[in-house]
Computed example of a mutant assay.
Amino acid sequence: MPFPTKLLNEGEHVVVSTRTHAKALVGPALVLVLAVAAVLVLSTVTDSTVVGLVAGAVAVLVVVWFVVRPLVVWSTTTYTFTNRRFIKRSGLVAKEGRTIPLNRISGVDFEIGVVDRLFGCGTLVVSDASTEGRVELHDIPDVERVQLQVSDELHRLSSGDHRDDGA
């Protein structure tokens, strides 16, 4: 899942690139199992072909909406911190992105709940000087390490140490 180098400016390099933890796919996996089980149960309980076709069509719609769509969103959404900016990108066909220059970021915090601790992830909170104020990145794997790396890069930037960006 490396960030495309063609999207980096000269002298810019990736500090951290990640996506949402795979725990976000637990719900869709359960929906898939339930949809398959429902179709199997309906197909064995009833002898009607019409009921089977309707159940199959409904199951396909449910799987596309509650399984395939979240899987595509998960696999195409990335969060990247470079030595100059934060970049959130998402989308398969229609792309969407948000960029915040590092010098506009005023803080990077993390929150880890009980369930997050079990999965080894948490929420990274990026605060900036914009009117939107903060960006919450939920279910980031190894969130404490990511927060430490980004904070270190912010400190390097604020102290005037530009050894990593070609200056």
Rank of each mutant, 00 (worst) to 15 (best):
W74I: 12
L25M: 14
V51N: 04
L61M: 15
I105V: 15
R85N: 07
D139W: 11
V143H: 09
V64W: 14
R104G: 01
T82G: 09
G11W: 08
L42M: 15
L102A: 11
V72P: 08
S43T: 14
Y79A: 07
T49C: 00
T18D: 05
L102S: 14
V126M: 05
L25V: 02
K95L: 03
N103G: 02
L137A: 01
V72C: 08
L148C: 03
L61G: 15
H162W: 12
G166A: 14
H138W: 06
V126L: 10
L34V: 14
A55R: 01
D152V: 06
R85W: 07
F119T: 08
T20D: 07
V143R: 10
L7R: 13
A35Y: 04
D116A: 05
E132N: 12
G120L: 05
V45N: 00
P2W: 04
N103H: 13
D116Y: 03
R84G: 02
T49K: 08
L118T: 09
V54G: 09
H155A: 12
V143T: 13
A55N: 07
L25H: 08
E136F: 06
E144T: 13
K23A: 00
D152S: 14
V68L: 15
C121H: 02
F110V: 07
R117D: 04
F3E: 02
S43G: 14
A94Y: 13
D47T: 11
L42V: 12
R163A: 15
V62D: 13
I112R: 10
H155Y: 05
L25T: 07
T99H: 06
T99Q: 12
N83E: 02
G113R: 09
S75M: 15
T131K: 06
T46M: 09
L42D: 10
V60N: 11
G91R: 04
L8T: 01
D109M: 04
F110R: 08
V16P: 02
T5A: 14
V108F: 02
A129P: 00
D152N: 15
F86K: 01
V31W: 14
Q149N: 11
H155K: 14
